[in-house]
């Protein structure tokens, strides 16, 4: 094998097909300059195996479609350079989420369920504000802090890396807790800690977190999950004491 050749081992399984059995399949291809997993997987599909399933949309690290396990670690495939990986590359679908086929998982369905459950939209008193009027003011720093958490792309890496999610199917994950932290930071949201406690004040929420914090390490957008979840847990614990 020349030094320009790489081998990708991909976990294949099509749950739609009764005859399909999970197996690792190897593909060898020529390495190119600047080659990402996006480029490599498309090349495999176009030249070697047109049945291979995977998801890409933006191919620029902003849409969150292409998260997968790369050598055991959840990553965005479009942002993963082949040159940064060891010679042996194993790709598998994200665990936890419903498998569509091969590397494609149904994160969309789970994320929508989570959003609905946690009501991840701004709650305000003014249902239909007068759009002709000057907008409400907001401190520039507050807007920046909200955006810091708003950058989440719902890729599912944090959930795939989560110890709690391995054991509890109903865990809202760092993605869910991060969203609550985002709305809690937003001065325009009228919900108080008691309201947030109703949403995440149990083991499917913030008290389910075991502080292993792999979520923080794998987040492709480098969200400050560690500090935000810790802060949220403290606030929710205080809320629970006050309520008792």
């Amino acid at each position: 094998m020349s030094h320009r050749q790489i081998t990708l081992q991909i976990l294949r399984y099509n749950p739609q097909d009764a005859a399909s059995k999970p197996c690792l399949q190897s593909y060898t291809l020529e390495k190119a300059d600047g080659m990402t997993l996006f480029i490599a997987l498309n090349e495999i599909r176009e030249q070697q195996d047109p049945t291979l399933q995977f998801d890409f949309v933006c191919r620029a690290g902003i849409c969150g479609s292409c998260a997968m396990m790369v050598n055991g670690r959840p990553r965005l495939a479009c942002r993963t350079l082949i040159s940064d990986l060891p010679k042996k590359i194993i790709l598998a679908p994200l665990p936890f989420f419903e498998l569509i086929g091969d590397l494609s998982v149904n994160t969309g369905k789970w994320m929508r369920g989570m959003s609905k459950h946690l009501q991840t939209w701004l709650h305000s008193q003014e249902e239909s504000p007068d759009l002709n009027r000057i907008e409400e003011r907001m401190e520039p720093e507050e807007a920046e802090a909200v955006y810091e958490m708003d950058r989440c792309i719902e890729c599912g890496c944090c959930v795939a890396a989560c110890g709690t999610a391995q054991m509890r199917q109903d865990f809202v994950g760092a993605v869910g807790l991060g969203k609550i932290a985002r709305f809690r930071l937003d001065p325009r949201d009228t919900r108080a800690d008691g309201d947030f406690y109703e949403l995440i004040g149990d083991d499917s929420g913030v008290f389910g977190c075991m502080s292993l914090l792999a979520c923080h390490d794998v987040c492709p957008k480098s969200l400050p999950l560690k500090s935000q979840i810790a802060f949220l847990r403290r606030k929710m614990a205080q809320t629970s004491i006050r309520q008792e």
């Binding site: 939209w121 759009l131 409400e136």
Partner: peptide, 14 residues
Amino acid sequence: VRELAAWGTPWSRV
């Protein structure tokens, strides 16, 4: 823009 602000978009501020 103002509707989105009321719905929660964290527009950068002056």
